[in-house]
């Protein structure tokens, strides 16, 4: 079971497109689209949102990503009238980036709060995990050159985030949190970039070893 996602947009095609993009990185997460009005026009549909919430809920909760105005208002109304509103969260995040980040977090087994936090993480407030927060051991360091043809784009970035998230360690890539999809993507690392990873915490060595193996495997590409 994973946290499910609902994408609410004024446009059915936007909602479906965002779902398609996010699902590519999260094959086991249920992501439901709720776009457009009941008759296929531009707007938001309470009934479509309710149906999408039901579809995405597998017991672990649902995170909702919205575009503009009435998408948020209608989602909030649906949440208020839901049977278990405590298992539904509306993320305050840009719809595309937020959905991708939330999907990756849900895919790696994160709970409701962590999936919301992943969606809401913003590059502007990017603060690398402080070494001081991790008393267990000094920082481990790994430096390598990216070999992926298109650099660390969405899919390899998702692999990195998923790998880093599996360890009890604070891991950074070029100084940003390697467990945050948005922050990793925002680095815009191209092929040939020399990239520094650092890790602290109990699993620091293992985390970097796994990342090194992943990079050697071109992040699965």
């Amino acid at each position: 079971m994973t946290v499910g996602l609902v994408v609410v947009s004024h446009s059915a095609r936007i909602a479906e497109g965002v779902v398609e993009l996010a699902a590519q990185m999260a094959p086991s997460v249920t992501i439901a689209a709720a776009g457009g009005t009941d008759d296929g026009g531009i707007g938001t549909s309470f009934d479509r949102i309710q149906a999408a919430l039901a579809e995405a809920e597998s017991g672990d909760g649902v995170v909702v990503l919205c575009d503009l105005g009435s998408a948020v208002l209608t989602a909030e109304t649906a949440l208020e009238l839901a049977e278990a509103p405590e298992r539904i969260r509306i993320a305050d995040a840009p719809i595309v980036e937020g959905a991708v980040a939330a999907a990756v977090a849900a895919e790696s087994g994160d709970g409701l709060d962590a999936v919301v936090a992943a969606a809401e993480a913003r590059q502007a407030e990017a603060a690398p995990p402080q070494a001081g927060d991790e008393p267990a051991g000094e920082a481990q360091r790994l430096e390598l050159v990216l070999e992926n043809e298109h650099g660390l784009h969405a899919r390899p970035a998702a692999e990195l985030v998923r790998t880093a998230s599996g360890f009890d360690a604070a891991v950074t890539v070029e100084g940003v949190d390697a467990k945050s999809m948005l922050r990793v993507l925002a680095l815009g690392l191209d092929r040939g970039s020399r990239v520094v990873f650092e890790a602290t915490g109990p699993d620091a060595r293992d985390a970097l070893a796994a990342i090194e193996a992943l990079a050697r495997n071109r992040f699965g590409e």
Binding site: G43, T44, S45, F46, G69, S70, L73, T77
Partner: peptide, 15 residues
Amino acid sequence: LISTVGGAAGPLYGT
């Protein structure tokens, strides 16, 4: 209204 209006007025007037 909540289920048929389709714009912000739906949830607002509905509420």
